[in-house]
Design a protein around this nucleic acid. Sequence first.
DNA 1: TTACTTAGTGTCAGCAATACACCCTATATT
DNA 2: AATATAGGGTGTATTGCTGACACTAAGTAA
Lengths: 232, 232
Amino acid sequence: MNPILPQFESVFSIDCLIFGFDEGELKILLIERNEEPFKDLWALPGYLVGNDEGISHAAERILYELTGLRDIFMDQFYVFGEVDRHPQGRVVTVAYYALIRINGIKDLKPVTSFAKSASWYNINNLPEILAFDHRSIFDKGFEKIKQKISYEPIAFELLPEKFSLTQLQNLYEVILNKKLDKRNFRKKMLNYGILKELDEKEKGVSYRAAKLYRFDRRKYAKLFKNELTFGK
Amino acid sequence: MNPILPQFESVFSIDCLIFGFDEGELKILLIERNEEPFKDLWALPGYLVGNDEGISHAAERILYELTGLRDIFMDQFYVFGEVDRHPQGRVVTVAYYALIRINGIKDLKPVTSFAKSASWYNINNLPEILAFDHRSIFDKGFEKIKQKISYEPIAFELLPEKFSLTQLQNLYEVILNKKLDKRNFRKKMLNYGILKELDEKEKGVSYRAAKLYRFDRRKYAKLFKNELTFGK
DNA sequence: TTACTTAGTGTCAGCAATACACCCTATATT
DNA sequence: AATATAGGGTGTATTGCTGACACTAAGTAA
């Protein structure tokens, strides 16, 4: 029943937490495995690192192969290296998160043979069981994102180029898992001075259209002064 | 000149940034290599992870072998996995930082054969050249510590159990690399309510002795509410 | 007793964080 | 044309934290 796969001594892999924000929901991309072990279970997309391939290169390659996307915001956040985390040998995995803009690309075709499908899951509604230790990887990565969103402008990586303040606030609310006050949120965001107000408005809504903004990377650089809590 | 060492295909190692605070200076522990490659150069203490050994276990073991210390505050902070970072093969290294209390243990005897000595270096006065990519590892790790000290109570891991506010402030100043105002620092620290004032005073000083404090882990738990910047 | 060295303390101003509720505007419906 | 609907957009008062700033207190050593 369980076909014996080639045994390996010690290899590295990359596993990716690919976050996307769509229709007010924060989602991650999972693949349905088509191979043992954990055949038919959902897993984080990931793959082995080549023998002559740098870790960060591998991460970008694997993301590209799965999503067709390049130049994506991604960073490693933890290494999972317990001896028994892979039933067939020693696999140390470097976990990355990636933040992508889901525009039209909701349904990604799995490119790799070991997956039979890929789909987006709301982070509050993941499959009960994930393959390997992928549940812990998710937990740890989501924690990081939560922390990071409070002091780095990662939210903008998840939104379209042009977005409304309401969209931005929704994203913060979903990640932080709490309601924020609309007036305070806007005051604070606009005060940072890192948003550029555009001459455009939302389209296709059946109510008053909201102004659109763009993240101003240039101005953001200035904000780097507030890195540290202590003043004098 | 350069003896050929056994070639390996793909292994992983741990490298440790071991921070200590002593006599008002922040230091890290370096070893002087006794083996090629980079013989006679200074390097971060580290070693290969065993084939049947978990990453975190290896980190603790390696730290123990080098310092004789257990139950130390340590955490991984980054993986360095470029193909050419080790001249003799593919070595992916998981970098950890560890924070230890230097009490009497200033001079550690190297336990491993590949080191001929170990010593503490002031972080502002490291050797010009470190082995491998250890300089980048230091830079990245020190950045993390800097950030972390502003929102997690890691400073206390570096101080003795009982410490004065002046000691604590010195440590912050050294890590953040700036002078802090004494009154503001004390006000802020004491307001957090995570310090327990003791009935003891400094001893052996030739001036007015300072009150000693202890970090109150229990009360700290409460402070976890301030994790996120947004209130309502 | 004096000199020296570090410990220890309070206030004010400015700004950011929070709490809170109503009118505006674009579209869809009748 | 009038009305309903749904989300867009706005201001103020309070409170608490941050940061600037300088002198006295206490202990030791000579």
